[in-house]
Simulated scan of single mutants.
Amino acid sequence: MRIGKRIIKWFLYFLLIHITYILVSLILSSITVDKIVTNESSEKLIYLSTNGVHLDLILPIENVDSFVLSGLKYKKNEKYLSFGWGDENFYINTPTWDDLTFKNAFSAVFLKSSTLIHITRYKHKYSDWVAIKVNESELKKLNNYLFNTFKTDKNRKKIILENKGYSSTDDFYKSKGSYSAFKTCNTWVNTGFKKSGLKSALWTPFDFGLINKYK
Rank of each mutant, 00 (worst) to 15 (best):
N186Y: 13
K5D: 06
L139E: 03
K103F: 11
S200P: 11
Y126D: 14
W188G: 08
T32W: 04
S200D: 12
V37F: 01
L116R: 10
P205K: 06
V33C: 03
A201P: 07
K9M: 15
I19G: 01
D56G: 15
I61L: 11
I61S: 02
F11N: 03
D98Q: 13
T191Q: 15
D98Y: 08
N135V: 09
T149S: 15
K174Q: 12
K75L: 09
N212L: 15
I119N: 05
S127I: 09
K35Q: 14
I132P: 04
V130Y: 12
L198A: 12
G71L: 01
L81I: 11
N163E: 07
Y80P: 01
T38G: 01
Y13H: 01
T96V: 12
E88F: 04
G177V: 02
V37Y: 01
K112D: 07
G4T: 06
K9D: 04
I119L: 08
V64A: 01
I61P: 00
A105W: 02
I8E: 03
Y166D: 10
F11E: 00
T50W: 12
F110Y: 06
Y214V: 12
I92N: 05
S180I: 00
G4W: 05
S30M: 08
D153W: 00
L26Q: 13
K73Y: 11
L26N: 13
N212W: 15
L142F: 14
F11C: 01
S25I: 06
R2G: 08
M1T: 09
K35G: 03
F182W: 10
W188F: 13
I3E: 02
D171W: 10
L55G: 11
H118R: 12
F206L: 15
A108W: 09
S168E: 15
L139M: 10
T38C: 02
L202V: 07
I46A: 10
D171L: 03
T50D: 12
S30P: 04
G4E: 06
I46C: 10
R6M: 07
H54I: 11
E138G: 04
T152K: 09
L202C: 05
Y74N: 06
T204L: 14
I22F: 06
K183F: 15
K112L: 03
D87A: 10
G177Q: 01
S49H: 10
G84M: 11
N39S: 05
K194H: 07
L146C: 09
S137K: 11
K158L: 00
V109C: 01
K164I: 02
K112W: 02
I36C: 00
I19D: 00
I132V: 15
K9F: 15
Y166R: 13
T191L: 13
E88A: 13
P205T: 06
F14K: 00
F14G: 00
A108K: 07
Y21T: 01
F193M: 14
H54R: 08
H124I: 03
W85Y: 14
G177I: 02
I92R: 06
L202Q: 02
K158S: 01
V130P: 05
T120W: 05
K123G: 15
A108Y: 08
L28I: 10
G4R: 09
T38M: 01
I46Q: 07
H118V: 13
T152R: 07
L202W: 12
S178L: 00
V189Y: 11
E88V: 04
N135S: 09
Y47S: 08
